[in-house]
Nucleic acid binder design. Sequence first.
DNA 1: AACTTCACCAACCGCTCAACG
DNA 2: ACGTTGAGCGGTTGGTGAAGT
Length: 335
Amino acid sequence: MGRSPCCDKVGLKKGPWTPEEDQKLLAYIEEHGHGSWRALPAKAGLQRCGKSCRLRWTNYLRPDIKRGKFNLQEEQTIIQLHALLGNRWSAIATHLPKRTDNEIKNYWNTHLKKRLAKMGIDPITHKPKSDALLSGTDAHRSKNAANLSHMAQWESARLEAEARLVRESKLRSFQQRLTRPTTTGFKTGWNSVNNAGFGDLESPKSTLTSSENGIGPSSIPMTEFAGTASASSETGIIKQEGEQEWKGLGGSSTNSASFTSTSIHDIGNAMEDGFINLLLNDSISTDPSLSDGGKESDGNSGGSHDHCQDDDDNNNYWNSILDLVNSSPSDSPMF
DNA sequence: AACTTCACCAACCGCTCAACG
DNA sequence: ACGTTGAGCGGTTGGTGAAGT
């Protein structure tokens, strides 16, 4: 798997792009498409490596890019998807129309990560920091320890499920094209994306994107997360089309210790049976201010909440994440 | 006004994976 | 089956402007 020499080649320019270079690249792609990135620079008359051209195009020049400040909704989306997907920026980016993975990554690193840290939330685990975990009563410590264990279990399951989904989605995508175009609910949602004709759009996305699409059906707007300031319902959870396939997502209180992901033939089932309950029932401690629309904490980060309230908040937080995943890009951001 | 520190973000680097011969 | 190549992804760096001293 040799790495391409790329910009190591002598004579190739590096560093910031000039307006002239941008113009050349834009003009060439508009006329010919990018084709082979490696071959593009020579054809376009650029002293750049193909990789540099590709990055410039995907992160800056592409016409469907939205630039500027992230709004509250976008922040919520990033935080909540990050809680679920981790640093899978390209996957997260598919839920944020017109935003690039690079931009999201930068925004996370420069804003959101710090904000969460400031709120006492570990930006990696999206849980209260360890020092917080170690404080409190024995009962709380015990519970937190259990949560850690569950989180590890969940993470493991999630990764495995994701990997499986990548493989299966490709197969299923092909099969679906041959059979039925209709979709309802999350289990087939990704097929709707595939069937919706996105195939002829340029897709620089990796298999992770496929996996991600597999989780989320299309056509559901990313609005109003649980517990957000804008939440419209009592619970803050929007009932989405296809939610019946998520039955029990928020209401069940059965113990999820039996969850295994070794046969996640259908990630929906796996999520139902497994980490959803696990998350919702075991009350993963999360700063409630997170659920507050991603806004800066107003200072009542848990202290004024009783135990039940914490559980509700946690449920809402993770519900909202799952709800979000149950949605998909309102349009195709990248492709 | 000069200097330092901080924040932001475009771009690069290096790794991985898939396609292809 | 194996090696090579192209492309994508995530982590990191470095330049630049803003804010602070």
